[in-house]
Design a protein around this nucleic acid. Structure first.
Length: 425
RNA sequence: GGAGAGGUGGCAGAGUGGUCUAAUGCGCGGGUUUGCUAAACCCGUGAGCCUGUAAAGGGCUCCGCAGGUUCGAAUCCUGUCCUCUCCGCCA
């Protein structure tokens, strides 16, 4: 969420930003409600003050008659307060609903535009696009020939969008995790495995909406829990309701978790193979920073993502995400899009966002500077280190060879235990 | 899953219906004393929101969370979450 005062004081900029992001939030109604709400609140507080005074005087009443009279006065005050309080709650609820719809502000350099067509390419990886002297296969075909993935089995067991990894693919999953963790630990990130479920309150705090028709989230029946769509949810939730010392920041975490996504409404598009699946494993980077440090941290997270994919010798481009494609919480977002020979195009493999204080305000995650009065909200950032399913596509398709084998990128060889995945006899 | 105990400020811990405006200690900040350090002593020390000032000040809310009873709740009642102990089950 944005700061209420900020919205009031910068209403034109907020409205413009909503337009840039393609969000139809009724900012004018929000502003009107802010005035009404404050008015009501002042009345409620005033009545509360008087009721408190009356209550206090009862203990010191001289006789029973006076006591009863004061009680009656208190009763009436409390009754009136209750009515006003109900009105206040209704106003606050309506305002809150609009408030939640208003997206984060956008970085001035983020390209303005309705959707990903407006994304701006800002860089390329070190690895040039591959030139095959044979017709490259897509990962589904490759996995079939090398016996690496059982899509039919996954569908039988859990439905379309689920899969079994087999043979070297299993080791590749472990190797990719180990590779990412090794680099990140070296950079001072604290490695963590996280719960694969989180309470709905934490989901909402990080900007994910459990339940509802458009939800990307699987919910657990009769429980206030959902399967997480990313470890961003659990890692961000770590500081929910907490206040940390400013000296403890930045906090750099990397979380390994499974990710579950319903992909509601996404059927048909990119639904072949591993690209859009209901479950995958991911190593996620997450950072809590001081407000002044978040922009530099975003560049750092992007640089780490580049290093990871350069290390795998996978060609990619980096895009600065357009306003209309940023979602709710992000202030600025970079995506890495790997070259995927199977489709002859780029496909998103990682994404890193600076959410400034937008998530922190919902989560109520604060920091305190020693000696200063009060607290402020931290900034949160997240970035994919390695999403296994999509990284697997990129590895298989880019490193396929004429004889049908796949060369394993150097950093993964030790864990996989071989240099090349050969076709099975 | 069952039974019991408990959740109070940065921490420990008192408080079972009305000066709780939350004791006390530790910690932390400032000061006095002092060659330096330490000790001792003194003063201060939560957060959010509203209002408002030159600085200030004033008010409301917060004792896990949500309800309820009452003129009044940290305190009584209900629900819920979490922690601990024991039992059962179990990788």
């Amino acid at each position: 969420m944005l700061d209420r005062k900020f919205i009031v004081e910068n209403s034109e900029a907020v409205k413009r930003n909503c337009r840039d992001r393609g969000v139809a939030a009724d900012v004018d109604r929000f502003l009107a409600l802010e005035g009404l709400r404050r008015e009501r609140q002042a009345e409620v507080e005033n009545l509360n003050r008087r009721a408190n005074e009356v209550s206090k005087s009862i203990g010191q009443a001289k006789d029973a008659t006076e006591r009863e009279a004061r009680k009656e006065e208190g009763r009436q005050l409390r009754e009136r307060t209750g009515q006003l309080r109900a009105e206040l709650d209704a106003l606050a609820a309506e305002q809150e609903a609009i408030h939640r719809w208003i997206p984060n502000m956008s970085h001035p350099d983020a390209p303005r535009g309705r959707d990903d067509q407006a994304n701006r390419e800002v860089g390329r990886g070190k690895t040039p696009l591959p030139e095959f002297d044979f017709e490259p296969l897509d990962h589904v075909e490759l996995a079939e020939r090398l016996d690496l993935i059982d899509f039919a089995g996954g569908a039988r067991v859990a439905g379309h969008g689920f899969y079994f990894l087999k043979n070297e693919a299993v080791l590749l999953e472990l190797a990719l995790q180990r590779y990412a963790l090794g680099l990140l630990i070296g950079e001072g990130f604290t490695p963590m495995t996280t719960p694969d479920l989180a309470s709905n309150q934490i989901l909402e705090g990080t900007g994910y909406i459990p339940r509802g028709p458009e939800t990307q989230i699987y919910s657990i029946e009769n429980q206030n829990l959902s399967l997480i769509a990313t470890a961003e949810i659990t890692l961000g939730g770590l500081l929910a309701g907490q206040t940390v010392d400013a000296e403890a920041l930045p906090l750099k975490l990397c979380g390994v978790s499974h990710c579950f996504r319903t992909e509601a409404g996404a059927h048909g598009k990119e639904s072949r193979g591993l690209f859009r699946v209901h479950q995958f494993t991911k190593v996620e980077m997450f950072a809590f920073t001081l407000p002044d440090d978040s922009e530099a941290m975003l560049e750092y997270l992007r640089e780490l993502e580049c290093r990871l994919f350069d290390g795998l010798a996978i060609p990619y481009r980096v895009v600065d995400t357009a306003t209309g494609d940023l979602g709710g919480p992000a202030y600025r977002k970079y995506d890495l899009e790997a070259w995927l020979p199977g489709r002859g195009g780029f496909g998103e493999v990682t994404s890193t966002s600076n959410c400034t204080d937008y998530q922190a305000r919902r989560l109520n995650a604060r920091f305190k500077v020693k000696g200063e009065k009060g607290t402020r909200f931290v900034h949160t950032l997240n970035g994919t280190a390695i999403a296994i399913s999509r990284a697997l596509i990129a590895v298989l398709e880019n490193h396929q060879q004429a004889d049908g084998s796949v060369a394993i990128p150097e950093p993964l060889r030790a864990v996989v235990g071989k240099d090349v995945i050969e076709p099975r006899k």
